[in-house]
Amino acid sequence: MGLLLLCLGIGWWLWKGVAAMEDPEFIIGPAAYYIINTAEETGAANIVAAILFDYRGIDTLGEASVIYTTVCGVAMLFSKSKYKRSSAGLSFIARRGVSFLVPFLLLYGSTIILMGHMTPGGGFQGGAVFATVTILLCIVFGSSFEMSRIKPKTKETIESLGGLFFVFLGGVGLLAGAGFLANTAAGFPRGQVGNFLSAGAIPLLNIAVGMKVGAGLSTIFYSMVRVLELEFGEQMSEVEGNDKN
């Protein structure tokens, strides 16, 4: 009861803070500058993508390294487990249905990544769609199928390549003398706003982040599933041993 009153008190305190705010009619601060100058400076039609990968690119690099740290943490927690037994997977109808759906899902994910500088989307969303596809394969076909098609080593390589590609694109700006992660100032072509080939390095950075996020989240899920199946396999062998005794 005391906890409930405490939470209600904190809520009332926060509400008193925001109730004084009016409906704003215009924007001030750095966001106004971004809205006016994005088309000229970067050539991207999606202002959020321009902020993420151009104006505040180094924040995005830090964010991508958070995912890398999480993969390392999960892998360290489950380091001693080995892969023994696969889950059985679902029925024939589910397998046929999913194998019909998977190409369209892959197309959807690549569209989100490649059109990220013109329409809503980008590397984070498209990478999450790719991770969802691998999770779907893992659930429906069983994890040994997923492991035989996309090896864990391949995922790690893709993730590392994504990170290295991001840093390399930042280093190009450094070599051109325009600063780390500089876009059009470093000589990337700006193009026409709204065209597919525009916005300089932003589509390439989208691809790098998509590789990193998709492979990273997929690896996290796969590590957790592997632990589950290991424990299950151990129990089964214990039961079989008891039967023999």
């Binding site: 989100i112 809503p120 989307g121 984070f124 969303q125 999450a128 769609v129 991770a131 969802t132 989240l217």
Partner: peptide
């Protein structure tokens, strides 16, 4: 919205 729909309800 796109990020939230994919990540918070799927992953």
């Amino acid at each position: 919205a796109l990020t939230q729909a994919v990540i918070n309800s799927g992953l």
